[in-house]
Amino acid sequence: MTGNFPFKATLLGTGCPVVSPRRYGAGTLIECAGKCFLVDIGSGVTQRLVQAGCSGAQIDALLLTHLHSDHLIDLYQFIVSSWHQNRDRPQVIYGPPGTQSFVDAQMQAWKAERHLRIEFEKRSSTSAFDIDVIEFEDSREVMSEGDARISAVRVEHPPVEPAFGYAFEALGKKLVLSGDTRPCDALVDAAVQADVLVHEVFAHSHDDRSLVGGTRTSQTMSAVASYHTTADEVGRIARDARVKCLVLSHIVPPDANEKDLIAAVRRHYSGPVIVGEDLMSFDLLTGHFNQHQVHFSI
């Protein structure tokens, strides 16, 4: 039953592969139907999870959008820290084909160190190191319990295929996370009348000459733009899906001008627009947004 449980999302990391002390790697905590779900496990997400008042021991399932490093580089840190946090059950990980191989490689890489810890530290359980992986290639229902449902939505992020967004539905409310994608009809369909759409955003046009330099060639900018979604395009998606609130996340680059992002979205979408920040949370049942104050230094 879901009636007495919260339906809440917390942005753990709103950044991208570019290192930023303000915006950590991709990760979102979802509390739904009395369970805790983690979508992606990018750089620093394990620390942000604790800052959000949760831990790896409490996560019921990790849902991966795709196998890009900025979405899963903290995976082993998540696994071993959950053991430190007294997790006494196996990990459950959903993801695209290749997830099992990636998990196996991570566990093998740290096998000797892990066994040394286990033998020396004498903890009561090693269940946190048991991993159940569920792979899927196309859109599907991930979980259904009472009136709560989680669905994977296949999106477009070539050449990384498949890639997924996720839709969470409970108590008449709907939250949709885009994952990494270019504009995609399947995501628009999944997000129709969503209470909150959390969408990735590529902040500049691929032909912005001021950004070309160093390793950022014009060819690089064009390639990156081709599998992400510009702020202008996000506005069209939010409009076409008639979403009630739009939250921008996975911001590329992490220091993008927020006023420019909102102005571009506003060309097409007139509803509420929020530029996401790490540890921002929102309650789907009350509509309340809360921004934690995170202090950082360089």
Score class of each variant (00 low, 15 high):
Val45Trp: 08
Asp240Val: 04
Ile274Leu: 09
Phe129Asn: 06
Lys173Glu: 08
Phe136Asp: 03
Met221Pro: 03
Thr99Asp: 12
Ser210Leu: 14
Ala167Ser: 15
Asn257Gln: 09
Gln77Tyr: 02
Phe282Cys: 01
Ile237Gly: 01
Ile274Lys: 01
Ala128Gly: 14
Val80Thr: 14
Asn257Met: 10
Val133Ser: 10
Lys244Leu: 00
Leu49Gly: 10
Leu67His: 06
Val50Trp: 15
Val133Arg: 07
Ser43Asp: 12
Ala128Met: 05
Leu49Cys: 10
Ser144Tyr: 10
Gly165Tyr: 12
His292Trp: 02
Ser151Ala: 15
Gly34Cys: 04
Gly287Tyr: 07
Ile274Thr: 05
Ser144His: 13
Asp260His: 08
Pro17Lys: 12
Ile274Phe: 06
Trp110Lys: 03
Gly34Glu: 10
Glu121Gly: 03
Asp60Trp: 11
Gly25Arg: 07
Val103Leu: 05
Gln91Ser: 03
Leu279Gly: 05
Asp189Thr: 12
Ala152Arg: 05
Glu31Pro: 00
His115Leu: 11
Cys16Ser: 14
Ala223Tyr: 12
Arg216Asp: 10
Ala223Leu: 12
Lys35Ile: 01
Ile73Asp: 15
Cys32His: 14
Asp132Val: 15
Pro21Cys: 11
Gly13Glu: 04
Cys54Phe: 14
Arg87Asn: 15
Ala170Leu: 04
Asp240Cys: 00
Ala105Gln: 13
Val19Ala: 13
His71Phe: 13
Asp260Leu: 14
Gly179Pro: 11
Met143Leu: 06
Lys173Ala: 05
Ile262Ala: 09
Glu200Asn: 15
Ala241Lys: 06
Lys35Pro: 01
Val155Lys: 05
Asp260Arg: 12
Pro183Phe: 08
Ser55Trp: 04
Gly235Thr: 14
Thr230Cys: 03
Gly271Glu: 00
Gln58Trp: 03
Ser226Phe: 06
Ser43Gln: 14
Leu38Asp: 07
Val80Arg: 05
His288Phe: 04
Arg182Phe: 01
Gln91Asn: 03
His292Tyr: 04
Glu200Ser: 11
Ala148Gln: 08
Gly179Arg: 12
Asn290Tyr: 09
Leu285Val: 01
Pro254Leu: 08
Arg23Ser: 07
His268Ile: 03
Ala263Lys: 15
Ile59Asn: 06
Gly42Cys: 05
Phe7Thr: 02
His295Tyr: 10
Thr230Trp: 07
Gly98Leu: 09
Ile237Val: 15
Val198Glu: 01
Val19Ile: 14
Glu121Trp: 13
Leu12Ile: 05
Ala112Val: 12
Val212Thr: 09
Val45Met: 09
Cys54Tyr: 14
Pro159Arg: 08
Pro159Phe: 03
His228Leu: 04
Asn257Cys: 11
Thr217Ile: 13
Val224Lys: 02
Phe202Asn: 11
Leu285Pro: 06
Asp70Trp: 07
Tyr166Val: 00
Glu113Tyr: 11
Val224Phe: 06
Phe282Gly: 00
Ala112Lys: 07
Val39His: 11
Lys173Thr: 04
Val192Pro: 01
